[in-house]
Write a protein that binds this DNA or RNA. Sequence first.
DNA 1: TCAGACTTAAAACATCTGTTTGAAACCATC
DNA 2: GATGGTTTCAAACAGATGTTTTAAGTCTGA
Lengths: 223, 223
Amino acid sequence: MEADTRSRILDAAESLFMEHGFDATTLRMITAEAHANLAAVNYHFGSKEALIEEVFRRRLTWLNEQRIAALDALEAEAQGAPLKPRQIVESFFGVAIRMAADSAGGRTFMRLLGRTYTEPSEFVRRFLAEEYAAVIARYKAAFFKALPDVPQEEFLWRFHFMMGAMSYAVSGADALRILGPIDDPDPEALYARLMSFLIGGLRAPLPEIHSKPARKPRSPRSA
Amino acid sequence: MEADTRSRILDAAESLFMEHGFDATTLRMITAEAHANLAAVNYHFGSKEALIEEVFRRRLTWLNEQRIAALDALEAEAQGAPLKPRQIVESFFGVAIRMAADSAGGRTFMRLLGRTYTEPSEFVRRFLAEEYAAVIARYKAAFFKALPDVPQEEFLWRFHFMMGAMSYAVSGADALRILGPIDDPDPEALYARLMSFLIGGLRAPLPEIHSKPARKPRSPRSA
DNA sequence: TCAGACTTAAAACATCTGTTTGAAACCATC
DNA sequence: GATGGTTTCAAACAGATGTTTTAAGTCTGA
């Protein structure tokens, strides 16, 4: 019934990081929830930083392997022809949404991951960049091939926007409470909704960019 | 040149919160950057929590007033007719993007705000919900009137996705580094890009949702 | 000018932080 | 049963944290 100490610590840390953030979560909170001794974190992982990295690694590696495998399958089937944008979007974000639908721990992890992209802490961002390097390169190439008429810079921003929408999608009802009461999402419906929105945004007409700066209202400096 | 202590503390706190997050930013870091005594924070604001709230309040109040004023103007001009979705989106997110374009402190603040929507800390979320209550109610009403064919729940999710995209848009190049090197955005170009994406997503075809009575996630086929 | 409020300053407060220590407990293998 | 490596445990560590205290400065208005 009880997993080993190492796994219990990872589960507790994942959940608590999600709930309180990295800095506000103390090792004492983690070890208490994991029914482990305080020293166990430093024994099994070496430091709190190393624990944070391991919390991400154990799921993120699998997640990105799934993404690459999905892209491999699509490209094999296409036999060198460009993929449809929708296929690429679905394979990248679909894997994530499916993981978020996993009640076990995937949901907690995806919500944690979503808010970590914009995490201030430098070492976390560097770590994420490394973990993502391979999969991002593959998907960038696939998108550029699928949308040759879209300038690269333009597309990168759209991809960035899509990540933002996805992040909020999995962060779910918590942040949505600002907008008012809403049902907890059925994963299938959430997936359909997000895909529809993402494809709509991705395929939107390219913006006309004027160089002339518009007048802006003055914001308050101090009060 | 030097503002008073209170303002210097607010500016320093805003910048440091943005860079390191709330918990990792200590009062000693803030007062050092503000060239103020450590006790000044508790003297002027009462506590660290109250300081955090004041950092948001001084700009957020103004921001949401601008939003309501923009909506007032649009609705006066329309004389009771529904607004165009694009107008509503532009007035809500345009104000924010314009504030983010302000080099003084608005940019720092908007980036801080963007990542705070998903902030774990309970008291911050409650505070934001209160600050947003009025403006959200107004915009919800305007959107429902402009898009009567879109179910309310559907729209709330799309609004949520839009907030996510906007949050990532202003968080900007930092998070984008994961995707690879990219120029720091010209505010006008960023505004045009985001608007194009948001409108595309908002106007996307409604997803076909195989309705929700299925409580079981991951059930591949059911009615 | 002097009193009284407001503001700054230095130091100390109790508490909490991540980490380390050294000994006990466990557990498979001989 | 003894051995040696692995894992747990309670206790302590040095340092940092938000907050409070007490005293000194600064400004304003009569």
